[in-house]
Design a protein around this nucleic acid. Structure first.
Lengths: 251, 251
DNA sequence: CGACTTTTTGAGTCTAGTCAAAACATGTGG
DNA sequence: CCACATGTTTTGACTAGACTCAAAAAGTCG
């Protein structure tokens, strides 16, 4: 079987993208603020600072004092936790418009996870005090934030369930389904997940090892469910993967 | 070694406890509302309905349309998710003052977990619309709620990490530590966890089986770390358990 | 004192982890 | 454009931790 060449095209973030005038546009499109008047957005904009992050660079580490809340303006950010054993856990991958830097510990203890730029990123940061100011002035924003946190909690609980009772096959299938729904891009022959994301990342998301992920994905590939290569996956049969994640087998 | 008799004393909830006049007191003590004026609390009180739940009874099921938010007034409530395999996952055990019934899906999809009374309970419920009214009128309450949800998210992410990289020994030790910090009561010879909570519950919290929990706890007991019996555990060496949860061994 | 539930113990099996090495991609510099 | 260095993925052999099934033991309650 001829293996397809990598369909991944790298995206570049021009530093100029984070320039002052561009920020208004980005902030105005964020889910939290989209509904606000231009004046409010301009006012909010003044409370944010921008910050670039090169791919693979850390934005903050687990345990760092939690001073700011962050919004992804452009690029992809991954949230991780490190275990004493050295193994790492990938909690989530975020894209433009999503927040990170826990609200609960803001101003108090340290961050509970490490944030790393998966691609070149443009990040907006705001201090805890200023963020509270926005929330106090805009109750509707607060409700949106509350919903966002709640959704993330539900998602996390779903992962807990998967880790508790699913086999490695099921966890990997379920994770591919989840990634497809969030990150999939329609292509000629299926849905492409282009993050870039390696076997190592997938192992860290599913609580398995690189070798297990490789073996399982080879099998899925042999069954025609997916096509895969270095740092990308294309989903050919989403229904089949969903069936595996729920029942444990293809048929 | 002589096994101690069960130190568990059952608590009874008098239905009268949920009477109208008693509610004011309870609501006024809840973390979300404690700081408000008596008038505000009286006003908020009118928006809540009360509801009893007998031990083992369900308050709602996963998938039920999410119409209300709940507060535990008295008793203990457990939140579970069920897998297709029939195995169940215990997400959290709540006590007086804690909320449940996800805020994110309120008014939208169904609940993402099942809520079951672990003991006889007194529950306060409020409709989505009325809860939003409170939040809009009291921004400081909203901030407290936001913090509470954020803390629960962090906790859930910690469980994800534990399930991902810890051995069964470590997960069980870590869970005992967590339960002790939340539920432990000082006694002559250690800290008692009196929920009531069985091997089955502990297995559902740690993603293991009843047999594994029993074997591991027997070993912990033999090493003098804990004493245990039917539906209760007493922690004799919290530091030892913490060491196991982090390093994997006692020394 | 039974009937029932919960917990413990045992034996066998299997999933997934570990260690090791080869195959494959990708990018670099000559 | 090729050869090499580096990082990623695949494959293989072995091992061990945890699950399953089964049955006995210990508590609890009417």
């Amino acid at each position: 079987m001829p293996r397809p060449k990598s369909p991944v095209r790298l995206e570049w973030v021009d530093p100029a993208v984070c320039s002052l005038d561009y920020r208004l546009k980005i902030i105005g499109r964020l889910p939290f603020f989209r509904h606000l008047s231009p004046e409010s957005i301009a006012e909010i904009n003044r409370l944010f600072e921008d910050r670039d992050a090169a791919a693979e660079g850390a934005i903050y580490f687990e345990g760092d004092p939690a001073s700011h809340l962050y919004l992804v303006a452009m690029g992809k950010v991954k949230l991780m936790r490190n275990a004493a054993s050295g193994r790492e856990v990938l909690l989530d991958i975020l894209r433009g418009g999503e927040y990170f830097g826990n609200l609960s510990t803001l101003g108090g203890q340290g961050y509970s996870e490490t944030a790393i730029a998966q691609t070149d990123c443009c990040i907006l940061q705001i201090s805890a005090e200023n963020f509270e100011k926005i929330l106090n002035r805009h109750p509707d924003v607060t409700m949106k934030v509350l919903k966002a946190v709640g959704e993330r909690l539900e998602q996390s609980q779903e992962v807990v369930k998967q880790l508790s009772v699913y086999t490695a096959d099921q966890r990997i299938a379920a994770t591919l389904v989840r990634l497809t729904k969030k990150w999939g891009e329609q292509r000629q022959e299926g849905v492409l997940i282009e993050l870039p994301f390696s076997r190592h990342d997938l192992a860290a998301m599913t609580g398995t090892t690189v070798e297990t992920v490789s073996r399982v994905m080879s099998r899925f590939s042999g069954e025609g469910l997916i096509s895969t290569g270095r740092k990308w996956v294309s989903i050919n049969d989403l229904g089949g993967l969903e069936a595996i994640s729920k029942e444990g087998t293809v048929n």
